[in-house]
Design a protein around this nucleic acid. Structure first.
Lengths: 338, 338
DNA sequence: CTGAAAGCGCTAACAG
DNA sequence: CTGTTAGCGCTTTCAG
């Protein structure tokens, strides 16, 4: 391993000067700066962040905390895309991204302990509400954090405007003439689930439409299988007075619902209109292509990174603490005029 | 920040003893061990890995290297699931996972420099063949690595058995009576693309079937849009003698192809059978549900972690260097007997 | 503009 | 079984 001392010796200066040069401090002669850089190059010197971190107490590391027990983690297309964008943006600011879990070497620990162990500068939270207890310790600590899934009091949050999105979907169905609108909800243990469900209720009320309890089914997990189950349940319980449209909490269950409906002999969208939420990559290529609500995952990931980094660096963060990212209706072929 | 010294003072022993206790070294009196642990608890002590890493030259950090310029990165359902499993398994061994990129603070750098900067113990490679040049420096270094996408000479690799999978798909189509089989290939810049394409050629030859060049189209990127384009192209160039089945390089383009075919008035599977590759979550819930080849992403991720960690810890790795994970045919509804 | 010295928190000999 | 000492690679006063 080549160190700052090797470079110093090569150049004939002190390690301090090399350090200063590498940190772009003012007060290093141009000529020596050049010599140092050349020598570093020749020797193949790369700074060691661990040593630097020890001295400065800054690791340039950001943790990401996913609750992995539910299907909402990295493998979920929504979060993987947010993570991707977060990670790239963080990199542009010089920060690296490490996964935070509940272990410390070979023993169980808390998320907070893990953060301390890695000395992360900040944490991105992408955990379901159900896991708030486990995360509480990091929320209570003075580690800076930003959340992209659940909103915690007094913590910065970057989440889609679920109310706006739901209303966009619902207004569109209404515009097409639908009045009997069902809702296949996300797990209501999630903020997304709750907010979309609430928006559905609000919408129905505001339009003076009857809320048929048989028109509302909740999925218990974030997986397509649950969509198939919920769709079947919906059909069963509302059999004598079927809805003409269903607003689904997210795309996977919308796709599964479409398939279930078709298997039951319904045509989509002629007999039943379906709208999803998320605009996941595949949703444009199902048959029929899914009408859905787009979430701006790139913006969410980037804004979360920007916000967290400002927090970490002690800069002021403009805008509200509960940051809502606008959604957009994507009209494709899964909804028809009644 | 509470350190080993604070704990030592509290207990009335030396820092060394605290260190030994925390590292589970033999030769610490049970009573003192207990006192140390209690004191640590009381004070809220958590070891600082940076300091430890500096002293031991071991970071317990594994890098993951994705080539992000193509659509094959974290956001791809295949890789995000591998990553998820890799990360969890690594955690069980006490390793954390950090993303490796081409930056160093605010300047461009090489992947190798980044690895040195973070002093990762090993690296998971998930980069497309096209990026081999950029990765070469880490391949040439003595950093341990395991690849899950491209195979590099003399490097451990954990990849699906693409030949087996392709043959499973093709044999199934053959069994259903199909003889005019087309291939919508992955980008041939990828190992997966090449191997599946080669298997297609091999299969056609082995069955004595004509290889109609019009039956082969290549997608240029890993995205569903390309599937729609390729499907259209296939239809156009083979219009006067259409295939009865198409073997697609991966699920997204298979879904897109199905949608394209249906839009052109073909019934799937009655007029055209389609088989995918990957068994991505959504593929069971499209209409028709997609017949496809399952890749065991959990196993790939876990085995990659296990292998990399054995390498890092200087243990022997049993089995071949080019590890091929068996695939499995998942029969659903997108293929019909001719 | 440059450098000497101390220290970040921890571990590794080596004595005791 | 326990402690002393030195040092990992870097940064930071503070003098020069």
């Amino acid at each position: 391993m080549v160190t700052i001392y090797d470079v110093a010796k090569e150049v004939g200066c002190s390690p301090t000067t090399v350090s200063k040069a590498f940190n772009n401090y003012s007060g290093v002669n141009d000529a020596t700066y050049k010599k140092i850089m050349e020598a570093a190059d020749r020797l193949g010197y790369t700074p060691n962040n661990n040593a630097r971190a020890l001295a400065t107490k800054k690791t340039w590391l950001l943790g990401v905390l996913f609750s992995e027990d539910v299907n909402t983690g990295i493998a979920h297309p929504h979060f993987s895309e947010i993570l991707q964008n977060f990670q790239v943006r963080a990199g542009e600011h010089g920060y690296d991204v490490v996964f935070v879990n509940k272990r410390l070497g070979n023993r169980e620990a808390s998320y907070l302990e893990h953060c301390i162990y890695r000395a992360v500068d900040g944490v991105l939270l992408a955990a379901n509400k159900m896991f708030t207890d486990e995360i509480q310790s990091v929320l209570d600590s003075d580690i800076k954090c930003v959340s992209v899934e659940t909103n915690y009091s007094n913590k910065h949050t970057v989440i889609s405007d679920n109310r706006m999105g739901s209303l966009q979907a619902l207004e569109y169905l209404y515009f097409l003439g639908h009045r009997k609108i069902a809702h296949m909800a996300c797990p209501l243990t999630s903020v997304a689930g709750q907010e979309r469900y609430n928006a559905y209720m609000e919408f129905m009320h505001s339009k003076g439409l009857e809320i048929n309890p048989k028109y509302v089914v909740e999925t218990k997990e974030f997986k397509a299988e649950e969509g198939a189950r919920a769709a079947t349940q919906l059909l069963q319980q509302a059999w004598d007075d079927l809805p003409t449209a269903v607003f689904c909490g997210y795309d996977e269950i919308a796709c599964a619902a479409v398939t279930t409906f078709k298997a039951q002999g319904f045509r989509v969208p002629e007999d039943l209109s379906v709208v999803g939420f998320d605009n996941v990559a595949i949703s444009g290529f199902t048959s029929p292509a899914l009408t859905t609500i787009e979430q701006d995952r790139a913006l969410i990931g980037q804004k979360a990174a920007d916000t967290l980094i400002r927090l970490v660096e002690g800069k002021s963060v403009e805008g509200p603490i509960d940051n809502r990212i606008p959604t957009k209706l994507i009209v494709r072929n899964s909804c028809a005029r009644i």
